[in-house]
Each structure stands twice: as C-alpha cells, then as structure tokens.
Amino acid sequence: MATRKKVLLKVIILGDSGVGKTSLMNQYVNRKFSNQYKATIGADFLTKEVTVDDRLVTMQIWDTAGQERFQSLGVAFYRGADCCVLVFDVTVPRSFESLEAWRDEFLIQASPRDPEHFPFVVLGNKVDLKDNRAITENRAKSWCDEKGNIPYFETSAKEATKVETAFLTIARAALQQEKDEDIYHDFKDAVNLDDVPDKKQDGCGC
C-alpha cells in the first residue's frame, strides 16, 4: 500500500450554519483567522499537503453550506469521502443537537461501504468563548463514545487551539480508511467473507 506515491484524502466538513467550518478549514490550511468570511453557498474546498506518519498526502478539504435547505443539493461530492468532520459550536446547543442528523445525512448520502466503521471526527468549536459555553466537554464526549468512540476535540479556529492536532487525527483516520478501501478493492471477495468481525476498529487514538 505504500507503493503509491500520491495519496489524495477527501475530507468533508459538516455542521450547522455559523459553527465555524470555513474558519477551521482556513485556519488549518492557511494558518489565518479572519472574521471576514461570507456565508458559504454551495460548497468550497482547499487542499493541503501534509506528512502523516512519514507519508506525504494531499488533503482535499470540502467545506459545505450549513443551512438545511442546501442539503437538497444532491451532495454528489460526499461520495468517496475518506473522513467526515462534524463541527458544532460549543455556545449553541442546537448545533450540538444537530450532529446526529448530520451524521445520518452523511451516511445516507455518501453510503460508504462499511458505515459502522466509517471514520468521523467531532470538533466542538469556539471554545475561546468561555463565558457563553453551553455544551460541556463531558456531554460532547459521551455522545461521541455512544456513537462508536468518535474522536472528539475542543477547538478554536480563532486562537488556533487544537486545530492542528485535530486535523492530524482526521488525516490519520482518512488514511486508514483509504487503506481499508484499497484492501477492499484488491481482495474484494476475500474481505466479503470475513466482513463480520469487529476487530478492525479504526484505531485512531486521540
């Protein structure tokens, strides 16, 4: 699997409108924070070359529109995603409550091969706004645990808190997923037979 030179990892960022998806992406890719972003219409993307565990990979990060009505867009680009990042705003309870719907929506639209083990990463953004915080770390963590040990990070795109670490985990998870996909494509029948065992948990320790 290490034979292929160029690895392209496709990462989708989802979450309610205004939770900071665009800011997180820009903070990670351009190391810049600006409060001059327009609301994302449709979708946008940025790419970044990173080294993950001594491997050079290109991350293609897709930023999406958060407003519900844009969901009907057909979201063709969900297909072939290697990792899905769910973002909520720790100061807005509703954005946390929507995580479930976003996760479902992604699984329905992207229909990954092995939905049980598709890698998600949850980011609770805007932790710099300590005074307005409405969702505790514990609450978010227990939700993530419940959904199959999804890695959880508390980030601030504004102050660049944990953004780098989070995206590294995202990259690793995506890379693992990519490998799994490769194995699947190479030995389709073989995998089909022992598809059942739960051993191959995506071991993305956080």
């Binding site: 327009k38 219409i41 449709g42 979708a43 844009f70 867009l73 057909g74 063709a76 680009f77 297909r79």
Partner: peptide, 18 residues
C-alpha cells in the same frame, strides 16, 4: 466529475455576487 450542479448553484442563487 458530477460537479456542474454544485458549481453553478452559487452562481444562480447569489446572481454571481458571491
């Protein structure tokens, strides 16, 4: 590439303003 739809959405819905 299945892209045209997504590309043209902001064109139409913001009348190219965005």
């Amino acid at each position: 590439t299945g892209l045209l739809g997504m590309l043209s959405l902001p064109w139409f819905i913001t009348m190219f303003v965005s």
